[in-house]
């Protein structure tokens, strides 16, 4: 590994080593894999496999998906017991009801209760309910999170500021290419008078991964 990495955030170590570097300017190409990515895109367009418009549409679609999608699912489950039952019965169908179709993977919703807390990881890589939460944060893809949350989940949660008492059971769900998990956090006390939109605004990304509570 080279040490003169000034204004260059690809230090080729691990993903979690990057966050402190400022975003690199978009008008310079810094790495071989950036060149390879451009080359692949141009070749695949030349061969008619994909079009530039299709690639752009997928980028725009990805940009449009934020944790607000998942928050709507959670808020509906909080206010509508029948919806809540459907969500735990068939996550894909319940998400689709709210306009969030998930294809190719099975969505499993898991519920936090006063005596059970859930947290999600993908130990092998980065599988994540992207259609409901957007792209995973860097730490979700980091070696430290993936390696440790299955062995010492309470310690990892503590690093996120979440202290679980010993009498709360902690379930860790390891995602696969086929199954994605969504944590339904506990509805905070004192929110009886809030409407669904106001409730959704309380639901954070990290609470739906399970590293935080609300």
């Amino acid at each position: 590994m080279n040490s003169d990495h000034h204004h260059h955030d690809h230090d080729h170590d691990h993903d979690h080593d990057h966050p402190h570097a400022p975003p690199q300017p978009d008008d310079k190409v810094h790495s071989y894999y950036q060149i390879l990515s451009i080359a692949l895109k141009e070749l695949l367009i030349e061969k008619g496999v994909v079009t530039a418009a299709q690639v752009r549409q997928f980028i725009e679609k990805r940009d449009s998906i934020t944790p607000a999608n998942g928050a709507k699912v959670v808020a509906r489950a909080w206010v509508d017991p029948a919806y809540r039952a459907r969500l735990f019965e068939d996550g894909n169908a319940a998400a689709a009801e709210l306009g969030f179709p998930i294809t190719g993977t099975k969505l499993v919703a898991v519920e936090n209760t006063p005596d059970t807390h859930n947290v999600v990881v993908c130990t092998l890589c980065s599988c994540y309910p992207r259609d409901l939460l957007g792209l995973p944060p860097a730490w979700y893809k980091s070696r430290a999170y993936r390696a440790r949350v299955v062995r010492e989940p309470r310690a990892v949660l503590r690093e996120f500021g979440t202290e679980l008492s010993d009498d709360v059971a902690l379930r860790v769900h390891d995602s696969t290419a086929d199954i994605r998990f969504l944590v339904v956090p506990q509805r905070p006390a004192g929110t009886e008078n809030l409407d669904e939109d106001a409730l959704a605004a309380l639901v954070t990304r990290d609470s739906m991964i399970g590293v935080a509570r609300i």
Binding site: Q24, D26, I38, R56, W139
Partner: peptide
């Protein structure tokens, strides 16, 4: 675990879209 957020660079978004 380093909990800091890391915004994707333009090329990373391109790679995701491709």
């Amino acid at each position: 675990v380093d909990p800091s957020e890391h915004m994707l660079n333009f090329w990373e978004k391109q790679a995701d879209g491709l």
